Computed example of a mutant assay.
Amino acid sequence: MTIFSYEAWGIPPTGFDPTHTFVRSHFVPPVVLACIRALLSIYSFTTIITCYTWLAHRTATVALKDVNIGSYTLHQSDAAIGQSFSFFTYLTFWSLGFYFLASSIHTFMYVFRGGRTWLHDGGCAWWWPKKPLQLAHSMFYSSVVSFPFLVTIVFWGTMNSGWPSGRFEQWINISVHALNSVFAVVEIILPATQPPPWTHLSVVLGVLSAYLGLAYLTRETQGFYVYEWMNPAHGKWSIVLHIAGYAGGMVVLFVMARYAIVARNVVAERMGMMRRERGGDMGEKGIRLNDGSGTWSSELIISRPVPVRSCPSHFA
């Protein structure tokens, strides 16, 4: 296995996600998982639309600071709508909306199409870039369970300068700086996904690096610093230490998210063992390893039998 192989990035030779872990759960039926994801997508996009509509007609007042920068006030109005696409907070929240939209569609397909999804079989069309899209979805998942925590910790730990008085400011702060991490926790706990491969750590760090370039491009094209710590007036070492701190924090958060998923799968397996020891019937929720075996596989717990659908070899 080389670093340039699909296997190194989470797609084994046996095929992408053979037990459909991205679209099922150890704890709830797939249809419930699909509905939860759809609701989170709706809330994400509703929040963004409401925020932009409000800013188009009013002005929000936000007080911020940083570890070495005193409190300062920002007044945001309609110009902030376009500027929001330069803020990591809003880019992350947009990403959550699109992730939950895509994942809910795949999960509903899994429920209502007998275990078939575009994510897993690509419709068997020769022109469908199946593996690249599967890889992209897997990387998308790794970012969704990592980035929101960085946003939340940085904002409430270093940037927030007091609780705002306006109801709109209070609500939008809670939505994009707190509920975003709640959404990430949902994706860590509910799906039956396997832990992200270690190679995905380079992806999230790469995205952070690309964002740093975007932030300074914003300065050159629009004339403002997205975050005040990026301003060299506060010292170049301040910029270096912020970048190193955020990169180190991202590594820690990725590792914590990864092992939280490991722990979730261990808990789910032990819960399954306890049910078996009590003689509980798993019914539709299990697949026996073979007809003569009395052992159940926790890796193959699904909500319904998945029909085998093969494609011609030249479509694979």
Rank of each mutant, 00 (worst) to 15 (best):
A80H: 12
I69S: 03
L64E: 11
T21Q: 12
F85E: 02
S41Q: 07
V111M: 01
A60N: 07
H20Y: 15
C35P: 00
D66M: 04
T14F: 00
F88D: 01
C35S: 15
W94A: 01
P12Q: 07
F16N: 08
V28Y: 08
P29E: 14
A63R: 14
F112W: 13
F87H: 08
M109Y: 00
G115H: 08
L55Q: 05
D78N: 08
V23D: 03
A79M: 06
Y90H: 08
S77T: 06
P18F: 09
C51T: 12
T53M: 08
F22W: 04
A56R: 10
S95T: 13
V32P: 04
P12S: 05
S95M: 10
T73Q: 12
S86T: 06
L74Q: 11
A102P: 00
V62D: 02
V67L: 15
T19F: 11
I105E: 00
R24A: 06
S95C: 09
L74F: 01
P30I: 05
V31M: 07
S71F: 03
T59W: 00
Y99C: 00
D17E: 04
L33T: 09
C35M: 13
L39Q: 13
P18E: 09
P13E: 14
L101M: 15
L55R: 06
I36T: 12
F93W: 13
C35L: 13
C51V: 02
T53C: 04
V23A: 03
V67M: 15
F87E: 10
A56W: 09
R58G: 00
G114N: 09
P29M: 10
T73I: 12
Y72E: 04
T53W: 07
F93E: 03
I69D: 01
C35Y: 11
L39A: 15
V111S: 04
L64D: 03
T21S: 15
G15E: 10
L91Q: 09
T53A: 15
A63S: 15
N68W: 09
V62Q: 05
G115N: 08
L55S: 02
S71G: 03
I42E: 04
S95D: 12
I69P: 03
G70K: 10
L101Q: 10
V67N: 11
T46V: 05
I42F: 14
Y52C: 10
I49A: 13
G82I: 03
A102Y: 12
F16V: 06
Y90C: 05
F93L: 05
H106G: 06
Y110M: 04
P13D: 14
G70N: 08
Y72P: 04
L64T: 09
M109I: 00
S104C: 05
V23T: 11
A38I: 07
H20N: 11
M109T: 09
T73Y: 02
A60E: 07
T73E: 15
T61E: 09
T47Y: 01
Q83T: 06
S86N: 03
A56M: 07
I81R: 04
L74I: 06
C51Q: 11
I36R: 05
Y110Q: 02
P29Q: 13
R58K: 15
